[in-house]
Simulated assay, not measured.
Amino acid sequence: MFKVPPVFARRLQELLRAMPKAELHIHIEGSLEPELIFALAQRNDVPLPYASVEALRQAYAFTNLQSFLDIYYAGASVLLHEQDFYDMARAYLARAAMDNVAHAEIFFDPQTHTARGVAIETVINGLHRACEDARSELGISSTLILCFLRHLSEASAFETLEQAQPLLDKIVGVGLDSSELGHPPEKFAHVFARCRELGLHLVAHAGEEGPPAYIWSALDVLKVERIDHGVQAMHDAALMQRLAQDRIPLTVCPLSNQKLCVFPDLKNHNLRQLLDAGLCATVNSDDPAYFGGYINENFTQVFAATDMTARHAYQLAFNSFEASFLPAPRKAELIARLQAHIHAFA
């Protein structure tokens, strides 16, 4: 077993920022910073209901998931052309590389755009081109996960899957996001079964605001490989045991949980409890432009608020590579790089 050397508390924050890691829960539309929203609005002649960048930032006072989604979809309205999607993804990947993210698996919401008349090819081709350029120019690998909007119908999800069929070589999997309450995973059982037949990886948001029962449904009905969020699992001992035993990853997003009042105070976040119970928990940024921080801010703030140690830091980074959809040799390479970094740092 790999042993994590002791690290002095004052250097822990530096370790969190410097260690290699993967990001597995990032909504690319949620990385759209206010400055880029205004720049794209001007480029595309799209009117905005805010007078300035600062006025838009001040609107980021959310009371729950739905209050966030209302602004999230309004911000996405400036994305019209392939270059817009490229610029958005390229900006995120540059920032992720600065945070020592070695690999990212990026969510995108095609229905948000096709409903406005933007072709799905425009969305996917722009994002994919940014991923390819970032790989060669920044050394960060990335893949795309197409997410269905759960507040829409399963028929709409099937329509989106059909539109994406010619482009499936440019995505690694499908997910399920948007409003959780009132939209249980089983609503999408048939479309997820079809995606599984197509050989796509499967993930789903469950157990952020929704109950542990949604996590069970995501696992048993949708047959997902990862649970996005999943923090409500703590309220179900049998579920916790299953998640630990089967090493089912949870892509936890601390600042998002705080901003959306799931854990109003980070000192009460259950990330450490999830780790100490043997779960394959990871740290991610969710919608960093809206929730106050990219992946390193999620690491440093939740560690500052809790009593986690360098051992937890290593485990979270290790879990992120283990939980990724990378080929086994690439996972082993990144885990070896992480271990060498931890030893050299300590």
Rank of each mutant, 00 (worst) to 15 (best):
D169K: 06
P185W: 06
Q165C: 13
L167R: 10
E180Q: 13
A193Y: 03
F188A: 11
R194N: 08
E159Y: 04
V191Y: 01
R150S: 01
V172G: 11
A189N: 11
V172F: 00
L176P: 01
L149A: 15
S178N: 15
L167I: 14
I171E: 03
P166W: 14
Q163C: 01
S156E: 14
S153A: 08
G182C: 08
G173H: 11
V172E: 09
E186V: 07
L152D: 08
G175V: 13
L152W: 13
A193M: 05
V191L: 09
T160L: 11
G175H: 06
S156V: 05
P184K: 04
D177G: 03
T160A: 12
E197R: 03
L176V: 04
E180S: 04
V172L: 12
E186F: 05
L198V: 07
G182N: 04
L181V: 10
R150E: 02
K170P: 00
H183M: 12
A155R: 04
H183Y: 15
I171K: 02
L161A: 02
R194S: 11
E197W: 01
S153E: 12
R196C: 13
F192C: 05
E154Y: 01
L168N: 02
L152E: 13
S156K: 09
E162I: 11
E159S: 14
A155Y: 07
F158D: 10
L167N: 14
T160E: 07
P185S: 10
E186D: 08
F188R: 06
L168D: 00
F158K: 10
A155K: 10
T160M: 09
S153H: 08
E154L: 03
P185E: 14
G182L: 10
L167F: 15
P184F: 07
C195A: 12
D169Y: 05
F188G: 07
T160I: 05
G182Q: 12
L168T: 02
L167V: 14
F192A: 01
E197A: 08
L149N: 12
D169P: 00
C195N: 02
